[in-house]
Simulated scan of single mutants.
Amino acid sequence: MIHVEIIQPTKKGLKPFIQLPFDIYKHDKNWAPPNRKDLIRTLTGKDNEFFSRGIQRYFLAHDDEMPVARVLAGIDLRMSTRVGETVGYICLFESFENFEYAQAVLDAAMRFLREHGVKKVYGPVAPRYDLLNRGVLVDGFDGPPVLQNAYNTPALPQILEKYGFEKWRDYLAYDIPVDTIPIDRILSMANRIRNRFGFRVEHVNFNRSNLIRVAQDIAAVIGEATPDEPGSYMPTPEDLLQLFKRIKPWLRNQSAVMAYAGNKPIGVVIGFLDSSPSVIGTDGRNTPWNWLRRVIKTPQTKTARCPAQYVIPEYQNKAVNTVLLAEAVRGAKSLGITRIEGSLVDETHIQSVNNTQSAGGKLYRRYRVYQLSI
């Protein structure tokens, strides 16, 4: 018999909620498990502004005693205040391939959201403000995700659509072979471009003493370059500090650059090393064996992910992005990187799409955020 329980956001209470995808994907060689400790900290609200400024409920469906589907449903008070309507969301949706399991847990989540005045729901979104995860994979199931991107089977979006969710927006992932980017030609013109438009380029310094300034500058650029709208989330400096903390093993100064006009940050391009090779096949725990695997695998990775490529409107169409990208790629090559995934590129941001394609990017994956009127 299928029944749904509300999970308490404690370390003990969340254990079966977190374990479920480990059971669903235990035979899937492409699944890259999350770090359990980091996820517990996120879901218990530690260092997570997304939760501290919202209301959440955790729902877990059982078939008799066996957990079979889960979802987190919530209200984003920060976004609701900005857009003037109560915005609901779902995240961490997982289910075995049985529509009745998914329907049970989604029905419970929608009842909760309706009771709190929500009329439209977006998702799946990440359970925190970050740059790495949005939507569910709907195209490109032939390999593992790159640096904490979403991963799921084709059944998951099919279940959401059968339930009544409709496409809101797609976020695109591009495969960019490093050798296709004409770095030398761009950099030969870089000084002339910088002098003409009055900006300079600096590599990001991820040293601990400099992180607050880095987070403030990147948040300022993203906030100015991206419009506010339901379903989109602008990271604060604190959000970015927590992101850098979570992915510290894959941060490299060489592949992250910012542009400044005087003291004003005007653009950013960041590349992080891919974490998937070091976590696939692990149990998501902080054991000595998993630590050793990460130490060995991380320097061997040939893939980086570029999740942040922003220029403020005043400096768009002035080759700022081109110079930033060339500098970041030159740094990535020095680390042995041969391939970059550019993601997540909002399909409605035509300039970002064009910039990525002009850099040699080939669309190879698509992630979808859905919407549902309730």
Rank of each mutant, 00 (worst) to 15 (best):
E49Y: 06
T81M: 12
N48L: 02
V105P: 01
P124C: 08
D142Q: 03
L43S: 00
L92K: 01
M79P: 00
A61I: 07
S52T: 12
R114S: 13
F112C: 12
E65S: 13
S80R: 04
D63L: 14
S95H: 02
K120M: 14
D47E: 11
G88K: 10
F99S: 04
A109D: 02
G45L: 01
D142S: 07
F59K: 12
Y122C: 08
S52P: 00
V71N: 06
T42V: 15
T44I: 15
V121M: 07
S95I: 08
K120Q: 10
V138I: 15
N98T: 00
T81D: 12
T42Y: 10
A108Y: 04
R57C: 10
K120V: 13
A109P: 00
A73V: 07
Y129V: 00
R41T: 02
V83Y: 06
G45K: 03
E100Y: 03
L131H: 11
F141S: 03
M79D: 02
M66S: 04
Y101E: 00
L77W: 05
P124Y: 08
L43V: 01
A108V: 11
L60T: 09
M66P: 00
D107A: 04
G54V: 06
E100N: 05
E115A: 15
V136N: 04
I40L: 15
L131I: 05
S80Y: 09
G140W: 02
D139F: 05
E115F: 09
V83Q: 05
F59Q: 08
L131K: 04
E97M: 05
P144D: 02
R134G: 00
A108D: 09
V83L: 11
S95D: 02
T42D: 09
C91K: 06
G117Y: 14
L77N: 13
N133C: 15
E97A: 13
R82T: 11
F59V: 13
N133F: 12
G143F: 11
E115D: 15
L131C: 12
P145C: 13
V105W: 10
L137D: 01
T81W: 12
E97L: 03
A69D: 06
C91M: 06
P124D: 03
D76S: 11
A73W: 10
I55Q: 10
A126I: 00
G88R: 10
I75R: 06
R82I: 15
D47R: 07
F141V: 03
F50A: 02
G123T: 06
G74K: 08
M110K: 08
Y101W: 01
D139A: 02
P144F: 12
V136Q: 03
E115R: 14
Q56N: 14
E65N: 12
A104F: 01
A69I: 09
H116Y: 14
I40E: 11
Y58T: 06
Y89W: 06
G117W: 14
Q103L: 06
V71T: 13
